[in-house]
Design a protein around this nucleic acid. Structure first.
Lengths: 147, 147
DNA sequence: ACCTTGTTGACTAAAACAGTCAACAAGGCT
DNA sequence: AGCCTTGTTGACTGTTTTAGTCAACAAGGT
């Protein structure tokens, strides 16, 4: 039931961008450093996020990445799904045809309920929520960590 | 976020035993066959379940395995935890010391909420619930599949 | 004794995953 | 124009985990 590093790193990266919503693009390098993500790894996460229309990237000097959609419009469920593939705990939840006798299979229903529970949580939280929680935690907000 | 085959197989196996609660021990071979679990694999799941006091095993002719605790006293959370290790979606939920700056780390809180949501579902379902759901599905009950 | 059944541990094959490296594309700056 | 900066892409590697197998063994019934 572990979430992949992909999904965890991706979420942290987006939080970082959300903290800078409306400002200049942030350097990938800085996102990596501040959120403790290996830079070459982060590079691979950005692609899908750009294609999904969540992130905008600008090349060249003074370039970087920034959020394209407003933070309050990005649900975590969306992000996780994009980077993780699917949140269902068992294959048969997404593809009922893979398990024979799904009609009798009670456990199938359980895994589906688990999935729904997770979905519900992740759908209820947006990047904006993360930003607010973060600001509440470290009262200093963005100034907390220089650079 | 996938559940391991260990946990899924284990759950199915216990459901099978719960269906025979109060009867003669069931052969491992039959559990494997009816729940579509590779026998040699199932053998490895039984050990931990016996040690945890959930299952009782009897060797020799007319032996087999049977539930030790009443089905209504076995929560799925217990089973999954035993076979899967932990249900938290991220390491840092179980070991906060592994992630530095956990004080500022907002995502940590999210993963914890996800874990709680899953726990809540799995704690609310016992083997007895599975049995009842199963009986409702296949009206014929145990007779549904001969052998 | 012998047959049946669960127990244990060693082992393998395959897949998934995290992470790296290097070549490249695109855009600003002087 | 040329250089420097920054993101993009794809190939690659090493490690870990996982599912699954095999074979020797232990225990109990008949």
């Amino acid at each position: 039931m572990k979430l992949s590093a992909r999904a965890r790193y991706g979420t942290k990266a987006l939080l970082e961008l959300a903290l800078h919503w409306g400002e200049e693009p942030v350097l990938l390098k800085d996102v990596a450093q501040r959120q403790q993500i290996p830079l070459p790894y982060l590079e691979h996460l950005i692609g899908p996020l750009v294609q999904a229309g969540i992130v905008k990237s600008t090349r060249g000097a003074r370039g970087g990445v920034s959020l394209l959609k407003p933070p309050e419009e990005v649900m975590l469920s969306e992000v996780i799904q994009l980077l993780e593939g699917s949140i269902s705990p068992a294959e048969c939840v997404d593809n009922p045809e893979t398990c024979s006798r799904s009609n009798l299979c009670v456990t199938h229903d359980i895994w589906d309920e688990v999935k729904e529970a997770v979905s519900k949580v992740l759908e209820s939280i947006t990047l904006q929520d993360l930003v607010e929680r973060r600001r509440q935690k470290g009262q200093l907000g963005v100034l907390e960590y220089p650079l």
